[in-house]
Design a protein around this nucleic acid. Structure first.
Lengths: 209, 209
DNA sequence: ACACATCCATACCGGTTGGTATGATTCGAT
DNA sequence: ATCGAATCATACCAACCGGTATGGATGTGT
């Protein structure tokens, strides 16, 4: 329990910055707001981070990346039936989604859309996460092929790319519609797509409305 | 050819605003940059648009919406085999994509991600476009069902939602990776998904690398 | 030719932004 | 106990933002 005070304030700043960036994006994220949320002042922030830019990169590395690692990458890596686990992760996300999470959207996706064309450092870090994600799903699918859950003729690399894309797309559209229902419906379709990669491809029943 | 001078300058502002918003998003779009690109000054801009907010809405209505109408909605509406046309539209987008279009991403998607949680007026207009898009694809799929191109048990409404989502997701991921190749690969997968809604579902050959 | 509205340039404003310089206080090692 | 480094508060700054007020120029209808 060697949680030094200094590390605590750094973490407070980091998570307040994440929240502010999640709400307003990086560029519109206000240093003043972040400090207001923490009760700290500029002296504290600029002691730990030399510039807003550095703070943004730290949020990506230490909040977003680590969050995805725990929520997605590790479960996929450690699962015995990773394809089933993939479907479960989607299911969990769909179930736990609420108005707030949908309104603000996927933090990773938000930053990608905003910052990739503007800042090389942001883009590089976000791309790394994206590729790790694609790789995790690809591994899951390839393991699924050995377990006869995925057809042998499936191009797992391309399918993994598409799953990540569609996943972020579902977030995006649901965010715009501000509708949890839309998100769940969309994720269901994505699950159906994954199932369609299996043998006996016809998925589940029609699900009108 | 009744192109009055006043309408021309209004259009110049409108398209410069679209470009600036496409590059930097709405909030970070600088009035000064827009005016710099056009060679005009604030007097001109605020003569036609009472506020930046109004200008942003006009860009959505008169540039983005109308662009999609011509590029997607109308072709789908007027095609005799709308499902084939849908695949063709994707194909065209994939072929004509270049480094610049990929770097900046889909204008509609960009604005959705940025503005939907922040501004009700933006969100409402963007949602309308999104729903029109979903409707256009849904109609195409349902016509496809009557033409035996789409299986009868497919939920066309849900599938249309997913296609729009995945479509935007492909843009988003390719934008981050800044890779035209990624975009094309992703669109190919989306085309495969559409084909998988048809009879004899197994799509095309495996396509490694 | 006169009056009036349209069109647009110029100058200016208050507010907010990220960033810095300085200094007070606390902590930690010796 | 003492000294130095780490930690953070305060005050301040130049740059930029969107927006406004004013006025000159250019049609346009009568």
């Amino acid at each position: 329990m060697d949680t030094k005070q200094s590390d605590l304030t750094r973490d407070k700043i980091l998570h307040a910055a994440f929240d502010e960036m999640h709400r307003n994006g990086f560029q519109a994220a206000s240093i003043a707001n972040i400090l207001g949320d923490t009760g700290l002042t500029k002296g504290a922030l600029y002691h730990y981070f030399p510039a807003k830019h550095t703070l943004g990169l730290a949020v990506i590395d230490e909040v977003i990346r680590e969050g995805l690692e725990e929520m997605v990458f590790r479960p996929l890596r450690e699962a015995e039936q990773p394809v089933t686990e993939l479907l479960n992760i989607m299911q969990r996300k769909a179930e736990y989604a609420n108005d707030d999470t949908i309104r603000l959207g996927c933090p990773l996706n938000n930053l990608m859309q905003e910052m990739s064309p503007l800042d090389e450092a942001f883009k590089a870090r976000l791309t790394l996460i994206l590729k790790a994600w694609q790789k995790a799903i690809r591994n899951a699918l390839e393991t699924g092929q050995r377990q006869r859950q995925i057809r042998a003729d499936v191009d797992c690399e391309a399918a993994a790319l598409f799953i990540v894309s569609a996943w972020e797309g579902c977030w995006g559209v649901a965010k715009n519609m501000q509708s949890v229902k839309t998100f769940r419906l969309c994720i269901t379709q994505l699950q159906d797509y994954v199932l369609s990669l299996g043998p006996r491809s016809r998925p589940r029943n029609k699900q009108t409305q």
